[in-house]
């Protein structure tokens, strides 16, 4: 990774020096070595503080929305960031010429909490291999299965490499199939059990709206969930269901499966599971790819003249 990190700094420095971009979004050091944070390099020297390692967790696409208002933006993008950017582009929220995308392939981001628990001590560094992850602690270097180390969203990832990079650092990894197996377990539950399952999840919600703020599909100027006629401020179970169902419906057919909502949720609500359920239904009912590719015709966003109008009196299906 360090070679790629060096090239990233070099590109960012050049873009900033030549004035191609006003700011370059990447990652910089956090308070702990295994928790880097998003970093906005606004001058060429700041480019040297950019870092890129297995702990860079946050999605960067959504930051673009704010930053492009002031001028062109450069950023480093993994597969999930790339899909988020595609979403913003398809929604006409960002113009392609305002972006310079430095693509990198990603084999998965290490969850520091999970990794430290697996290793039994602080993990300073990691290497993500094919099926295993090597965790490096002050005392040892040991390999663990991916599921014991990576973020949940990375375990189901289907797009390691962004499709819209202006320049790609390193090798491209071909896209795979999205793993929707975890939806089956919920679908198999009897309805009352399923209700209790979701009630247990949603009642933990703090309504901090982090899921909305990080979501590249939630890019509206004004959110209907901020309007009291649609959603009251209370956090009773009815309001929680209303909030989460509305959020899920508003991204249905538009969710790019970047997993940011689930990663950002401080209450650990499996929002990705809900999104994946919609994705599976859309795939099975409308035959669209899972996840849906932004820019394609949206399965729930078109008027189809071939619809049989089955709901008409005397039509099919009455």
């Amino acid at each position: 990774m360090s070679d790629i990190q060096a090239r990233l700094r070099e590109i960012a420095r050049r873009l900033l020096t030549e004035g191609h971009v006003r700011v370059f979004i990447g990652f910089g050091p956090g308070f702990e070595a295994n928790r880097p944070v998003p970093f906005f390099a606004a001058d060429p020297d700041a480019a040297d503080r950019l870092l890129l390692d297995e702990f860079c967790a946050a999605g960067l696409a959504r930051y673009v929305l704010e930053e492009v208002r002031e001028g062109p933006v450069g950023l480093v993008a993994r597969g999930c960031d790339g899909l988020g950017l595609e979403r913003l582009l398809a929604d006409h929220r960002v113009a392609r010429e305002q972006l310079y995308v430095v693509g990198v392939s990603c084999r998965g981001v290490v969850d520091p909490d999970r990794a430290c628990a697996a290793a039994g001590e602080e993990v300073r560094a990691a290497r993500v291999n094919g099926e295993t992850v090597t965790l490096i602690t002050p005392t040892a270097e040991r390999s663990f299965p991916r599921s014991a180390c990576l973020l949940d969203k990375c375990l189901r990832c289907q797009d390691p490499t962004p499709r819209i990079a202006d320049v790609l650092l390193g090798e491209a990894i071909p896209p795979g199939e999205r793993d929707l197996a975890h939806v089956d377990a919920v679908e198999r539950m009897p309805s009352d059990e399923r209700y209790r399952f979701w009630a247990r999840q949603f009642e933990r919600c703090l309504r901090c709206l982090a899921c909305r703020q990080v979501c590249p599909a939630c890019n509206c100027v004004s959110c209907s969930l901020d309007r009291p006629e649609w959603l009251e401020r209370g956090t009773g179970l009815a309001e929680q269901f209303m909030f989460h169902f509305t959020r899920a419906y508003h991204v249905a057919g538009r969710c790019v499966a970047c997993g940011e909502c689930e990663r950002a949720c401080p209450a650990g609500i499996p929002l990705g599971l809900l999104n994946d359920k919609f994705m599976k239904d859309l795939r099975d009912l409308f035959g669209v790819a899972a996840p849906h590719r932004p820019g394609d015709v949206e399965p729930l966003g078109k008027f189809c003249p071939d619809d049989p109008e089955g709901w008409h009196e005397g039509g099919e299906g009455t």
């Binding site: 929604d91 006409h92 929220r93 890019n219 509206c220 100027v221 004004s222 015709v297 949206e298 966003g301 078109k302 008027f303 003249p305």
Partner: peptide
């Protein structure tokens, strides 16, 4: 217009 984000999802759904 103050609320419209300009995503234009309204356009393809309009018959």
């Amino acid at each position: 217009e103050t609320r419209c984000a300009g995503c234009f999802l309204c356009r393809p759904v309009c018959p």
